[in-house]
Nucleic acid binder design. Structure first.
Lengths: 333, 333
DNA sequence: CTGAAAGCGCTTACAG
DNA sequence: CTGAAAGCGCTTACAG
């Protein structure tokens, strides 16, 4: 019923091994043979069985995509569709597929990743987050499977692609200072995500370089990455009188903050935040300057790095790439 | 190097076929044997090779997830992470994985879906959109692979899970009328997406039932699903004086509309829209009533339907499920 | 309840 | 440049 390599071989008048080499576009096959066989493959509507290929070659031509826990507020972030678009873009050049991680709990997620890695369903892994003490990343490192993290984890032996969060945190703060802000607060979120910490470092560096005092009480943290959290923060918790600038580590939170500022008719506070790409998902509440993170680039570079690492894997010496994508300050008049 | 079923068999003192049956939790194996073998599997850190399983059983234990074209504005919609969460939730009960469709153009997407379907990488397909003349859906139907569409396509021979868009369109319009609105516009989006059309039908039905005239010129369509499009519409194109109500087919568009209404200080127009779940991603600009679509349920039901259809596939008579999830009117005081 | 054996559809040294 | 053959790691009738 299903057409196999044998059917193609018979109809083409060659051996199955030759058909296999045509599939792989092996240079050792003559152009004439290739064309003849391809014609037959087309006529028979032949598609190679991926499971057989995977078994015989031990290459599944699939990468695993590791998302954060779905119950995490971070999961909702517009960051993800944007990286995914970048990943998808880069993948289309290759002949690979993407398998999604799943699981409702960390334990389930760990079991699933074990299954797909040890079960040879995936040849490499792309982590879409970097958080503290992540059991999945620990597993990946031990399993010694090619892995790239979109984000900067607290691990050395893994490929990393990220924005330089410290630098862009500084960049954002520098901008506010340059615009004349005297007392700037940092509005973060979940400190378990490394990018929140790293942007905070940049904020601190900027203050110090500009001879401004860095104070713990100007840091607002420990809430989820939701618009509502930013909104509540402004409505209830912050003494707005003492600030004239906010560096807001996440776009979603910034949205809620700006909403609340608007409702409270506060206009003496400048805000700056970070967005995945130039055209924002939501129409901006207040037209403020922001840092464009080029998030789609994070995704496409992640894929390229993984392919590179696949090729060099066999080589004796294993190197780890650590690549940063620049943020771009977009000034809105 | 990799531990196989033979290693487990040897160490357990049974045949490989027995180990295989233990993996499948076959009822024909004694409890004692199962425990013994499982212990060894654990000791050896054994995981079955998925490619071998797939080849031997012709079941890949994987579903394909078909996303819309990434360049489509719809791709950014918060709808997707929400269905995905529902899918993920339902999947965790089973031992299946999700493979993402990819491709930068419709042609690439079609090639990729052919490859994974004919190449036996997936046993079933979940479409996350329903649009006009979709070549991928046409392919799926011809290929006769179990398929469920999240959305209501113009096809009969496929499983469908969706909100009842006509009913919720009516429900939304009824609500505005009940609140005293006299002249209500329908703000849609891309008419190639069926849900936009169907909600429009409900809008029309409601007007007719309430003896209000349905006029073509009160329908605003043909723009992308972006907040900015809703914003521009209000800012430039609509004569706001003649309306006192808007039914807005998409949350993102509604966000832009509300933003523009706020800026123009328009308060005589009530709006209603549809949201994937109760807690909105963004803090609402104006606290207005909305219809909760229970989108995560769409995702989890899609998975269940696909599993059901897998089981009944062998049976002679093929039936198609068409299931609707209710919308829930959330009234904000 | 368990085992021996064939087979799933490919790839890949090896030989020529 | 091409072919014959072994093998990848499972599953599944069949037999007992």
């Amino acid at each position: 019923m299903t057409v196999t390599i044998k059917d193609v071989a018979k109809k083409s008048g060659v051996a199955p091994s030759t058909v296999s080499r045509v599939i792989a576009d092996s240079p050792s096959i003559s152009q004439a043979t290739k064309e003849k066989v391809r014609k037959v493959m087309h006529e028979l509507n032949y598609f190679p069985n991926a499971n057989a290929q995977g078994l015989a070659s031990s290459r599944s031509k699939t990468f695993g995509l590791i998302l954060p826990l779905a119950s995490d507020a971070f999961y909702q972030n517009p960051f993800f569709p944007t990286v995914l678009r970048g990943i998808n873009f880069a993948m289309s050049k290759y002949d690979y597929s993407i398998l999604l991680s799943s699981g409702q709990t960390d334990e389930q997620r760990l079991n699933h990743i074990k299954k797909i890695v040890h079960g040879k369903k995936v040849e490499g892994l792309i982590f879409l987050y970097a958080s503290k003490n992540d059991p999945l990343l620990n597993f990946a490192l031990n399993a010694n499977i090619p892995t790239v993290v979109v984000g900067t984890p607290d691990k050395v032996k893994v490929h990393v692609i990220d924005n330089d969060n410290e630098t862009i945190g500084k960049q954002a703060t520098d901008y506010l200072i340059q615009e004349g802000c005297q007392n700037i607060a940092y509005i973060g979120g979940d400190m378990n995500q490394y990018f929140i910490k790293d942007r905070l470092k940049g904020y601190q560096t900027s203050l110090e370089e500009n001879n401004k005092e860095f104070k713990e009480e100007n840091i607002y943290n420990d809430f989820a990455f939701l618009s509502t959290d930013g909104y509540q923060l402004i409505k209830n918790e912050i003494d707005l009188g003492i600030y004239d600038g906010f560096v807001i580590a996440d776009e979603l939170v910034a949205n809620g903050v700006q909403q609340a500022l608007l409702e409270k008719k506060v206009s003496h506070i400048k805000t700056i935040t970070f967005k995945p790409f130039q055209q924002a998902l939501y129409h901006p509440i207040i037209e403020e300057s922001y840092i464009n993170l080029h998030t789609h680039m994070l995704g496409s570079r992640a894929v390229s790095i993984l392919f590179d690492s696949l090729e060099t894997k066999s080589q004796s010496e294993q190197r780890y790439i650590r690549e940063y994508v620049d943020g771009e300050l977009i000034v809105t008049p």
